[in-house]
């Protein structure tokens, strides 16, 4: 028993992302409290709800690994939702919406990346400011009221299934797979690890540090655009309030998944399970009657506890 708690074992266990433990615990809680919920249809619906978050996390994970953060997601989401649900582009086709959404995500991501990477402005401030600007613009355009309906093709696609699994979930898994392969098979993944571990050393070993950060933010912008499309399809109406909590949830899921500033031990799948944990958490909280405020507190506590967990670990390994 004593051997279990010695230093090396602690280190080994502390290297496993907390998301896996949290996921397992929540699964057990749910299995005990509401066993009938554990079937593929119901779980599919629950998981489908967190797909926008899951896609957002794929980008958030990348920027957090290069010591940055992206909190501008809510603004991008509102803007894209506005494109689709208002009469801004009457009668536009699905490819047009996808294209303009991706272009928006790309532009915002590039801007964030430029400010953080080239201008060295604090990422929190840049992305929060960008968020404020975008939210302000959308609310002004919509005069504070929900814009209108989303073309039905969005919800039609959103509600399809493939081999019993909702299409959005498959889309998310496919994106995660692509991201995972991209980071493990391409030089860019090496650059990301290096910049995260030590940006100065990365510079001296010839890594284009600024470009790596800019690309990370750009990819995050594109992911935000994709997440926004899925989110818009899921609510099927225009809104000026939707999704303001998504970016911070994405940070929480990422940290929970074992990816902390500058360290990427959790890879792509740690944060993936972080998102799944949130899917279960929402279900558990709803079944136990915990309201919106309680969810806020829980989110805050999860981020804080996960950050303390990693903070203590790095403090230990330093001395």
């Amino acid at each position: 028993m004593a051997a279990l708690f010695n230093r090396t074992n602690f280190n080994r266990i502390s290297r496993i992302p907390p998301a896996y433990f949290v996921f397992a615990v929540l699964l057990i809680v749910l299995w005990i409290a509401r066993p009938h919920m554990l079937n593929i249809n119901i779980m599919g619906i629950f998981i489908r709800q967190v797909v926008p978050l899951g896609i957002l996390v794929l980008g958030q994970m990348l920027v957090i690994r290069v010591n940055s953060i992206d909190l501008s997601g809510a603004g991008v989401l509102l803007l894209i939702n506005f494109y689709i649900s208002s009469s801004m582009f009457p009668g536009a086709s699905l490819p047009f919406f996808v294209a303009i959404s991706l272009a928006t995500g790309l532009a915002v991501g590039l801007f964030n990346g430029y400010m953080v990477g080239k201008r060295r402005v604090s990422a929190v401030i840049v992305t929060l400011a960008v968020n404020i600007v975008l939210v302000g613009i959308v609310q002004f355009l919509a005069s504070g009221k929900p814009p209108g309906d989303v073309p039905s093709i969005f919800s039609d696609i959103y509600n399809t299934k493939l081999w019993l699994i909702p299409t959005p979930v498959l889309f998310w898994v496919a994106l995660a797979l692509i991201m995972s392969l991209f980071l493990s098979r391409f030089v860019y993944g090496r650059y990301v690890s290096s910049v995260g571990a030590n940006p100065v050393a990365a510079l001296f070993s010839g890594v284009p540090v600024e470009r790596t950060v800019i690309v990370a933010h750009t990819i995050a912008g594109l992911m935000t655009a994709l997440a926004s499309l899925v989110q818009t399809a899921s609510i099927a109406v225009g809104s000026v309030r939707v999704g303001h909590e998504l970016p911070i949830l994405a940070v929480a899921a990422t940290i929970l998944g074992g990816v902390v500033f500058g360290r990427g031990e959790g890879g792509v799948w740690g944060p993936f399970f972080g998102v799944l944990s949130f899917a279960l958490l929402f279900v558990v909280m709803t079944t136990f009657g915990i309201g919106e405020s309680g969810k806020l507190i829980t989110q805050g506590l999860i981020i804080l506890l996960a950050a303390i967990f990693y903070g203590l670990r790095t403090a230990k390994s330093r001395t």
Binding site: F186, V187, Y188, S194, G206
Partner: peptide, 23 residues
């Protein structure tokens, strides 16, 4: 990169001679 492996530390010089979007 103290938190990364010897292999990564040595190979970075080679990796960084390439573009980020190459294998």
């Amino acid at each position: 990169f103290l938190t990364l492996s010897i292999g990564h530390n040595i190979a970075m010089g080679l990796h960084s001679r390439k573009s980020e979007f190459s294998l």
